[in-house]
Design a protein around this nucleic acid. Structure first.
Length: 429
RNA sequence: GCCGCCGUAGCUUAGUUGGUAGAGCACUCGGCUGUUAACCGAGCGGUCGUAGGUUCAAAUCCUACCAGCGGCGCCA
């Protein structure tokens, strides 16, 4: 038994092969039928003819429906007329299931494909996306293992919010209520005091009624927290990480990138270091681009898009005014109205993929900031304890892994970057 | 939370000023020994999202409801 990819070569020309998979296309020409077989590795054209098959067997295989499952034995031959250059003339086959009509046909609407995502995941296009996504997640973890980080796991059911209270999903929990996590950050912070450098890959949940091309209510979050690192140190880690992930995709998924029409040469040029631009300087730059922004404005989707068409590498935007970010960010000692944080914006108009920065390590300052934000300190007793016992400077970030896949593949909508997108109006399939 | 849009056959859709629905694909049957989302011929397939209203007459006009899509804000 072989995979299709492994027999598509000169070495197997003329030899007997044994393949299994699903019917991708069928074409019949009277007493000659072509079946394109698909497996996880690729496609190959099968030839069925009455030369090799009895009439009843020929009738059975020449009338196969799309996505029927089967196993075939035959002789492989090089043939330029076949879609992938080789063809197998069927000598015998075993049918696992002859399908009813497959719901997905050549005319496909967006909503229909979302309703039938459980079948659409078989498409060559989606298969290619999932292979790249697999590389991205593996490369993220590998990068940190190579740099001495530990992978840790944090609870998904939590009792305190990382950001604000309004965007949490409530879940019944025996006689109480808990929330689905929005971020693992606070738990990661607890672990730097033993492991020093930690990361996790976990879903985050946001009950925001977002309807945009780059928001999901459930998304995959790659998060890192490291002791002793300052804002600039963390940015150096991140730019190396992004370069590593992108180059791993280039190295391992050239075929998929080509199948999806992604410009591989562009991705090859993604290299650290990335430019750092202070928020205040970025606002000045936007004046010459006519964006009409003033100091204190947040970067919206339209602004990010308009800014990022001017860059062909990711950039860091640093030193945001503190009122634009949440309470735990470290104020800049040289200018306490700005914070030691950074967002990484992806080029080609894709915008924010990472948000991170240095955390406040001083207890009094953190308590004051929480008061300013109207938070109940009792709920955060354990987070505050980290600043009571052996507090150290530390930094971290959160990476939207689905957004990273979205950018790397130059897709139009984040729903194309995840098998089962969860949005405000979709929980099925 | 705000703004906009759509719903006609299994899928993709046409339907003019209101006059009882037309096509392509899929499927079934027939034809074809080199097809490339094959092609040719025939057939099957519709409470026009639901409910109400206006009218001699509603897919078309009005109201409500249901379902979904796109964009903004928020963020990753």
């Amino acid at each position: 038994m072989s995979y299709i990819r492994d027999v598509l070569n000169e070495e197997h020309d003329g030899s007997a092969v044994h393949l299994r998979g699903w019917v991708y296309r069928t074409r019949s020409s009277g007493k000659l039928s072509f079946i394109v077989l698909r497996d996880s590795t690729g496609i190959i054209q099968l030839l069925a003819s009455t030369r090799k098959l009895q009439d009843d067997k020929y009738r059975e295989i020449s009338s196969l429906t799309i996505e029927s499952s089967l196993e075939v034995m035959g002789i492989l031959r090089k043939d330029d007329r076949a879609p992938t250059g080789y063809e197998v003339e069927i000598e015998d086959f075993k049918l696992y299931q002859r399908n009813e009509n497959y719901p997905i046909t050549k005319d496909q609407g967006e909503e229909f494909l979302l309703d039938n995502r459980h079948l659409w995941v078989r498409s060559r296009e989606f298969t290619a996306m999932m292979k790249v996504r697999s590389t991205v997640f593996k490369a993220f973890a590998d990068f940190y293992f190579k740099h001495g980080y530990y992978e840790v796991h944090t609870p998904f059911m939590v009792s305190t919010a990382a950001e604000g209270g309004s965007t949490l999903f409530k879940v019944p929990f025996f006689d109480e209520e808990v929330y689905l996590t929005q971020s693992s950050q606070f738990y990661l912070e607890t672990m730097i005091f033993s492991l020093e450098n930690v990361f996790t890959i976990a879903p985050s949940f946001r009950a925001e009624k977002s309807r945009t091309w780059r928001h999901l209510t459930e998304y995959w979050h790659g998060e890192v927290e490291a002791a002793w690192l300052h804002n600039e140190d963390m940015m150096q880690v991140e730019e190396q990480m992004i370069e590593y992930i992108v180059q791993e995709v280039v190295k391992n998924n050239t075929e998929e990138l080509n199948a999806l029409g992604r410009d591989v040469e562009f991705l090859k040029r993604i290299k650290a270091p990335f430019r750092r631009i202070r928020y205040a300087d970025l606002i000045k730059m936007t004046e010459s681009w006519g964006l009409g922004m003033k100091y204190g404005d947040d970067l919206g989707a339209d602004e990010e898009r308009a800014i990022m068409v001017h860059f062909d590498q990711p950039i860091f935007v640093t030193h945001y005014p503190s009122k634009l970010k949440t309470f735990y960010h470290m104020p800049d000692p040289d200018n306490p109205d700005e914070i030691l944080c950074h967002d990484m914006l992806a080029p080609e108009g894709y915008g924010e993929i990472v948000g991170g920065g240095e955390r406040i390590s001083d207890l009094n300052l953190l308590e004051k900031r929480m008061e300013d934000y109207g938070l109940n300190k009792d709920n955060y007793y354990w987070y505050l304890d980290l600043r009571r016992y052996g507090s150290v400077p530390h930094s971290g970030f959160g990476l939207g892994l689905d957004r990273l896949v979205l950018w790397i593949l130059h897709l139009d909508n984040i729903k194309e970057a995840i098998p089962y997108p969860r949005t405000i109006r979709r929980t099925k399939p």
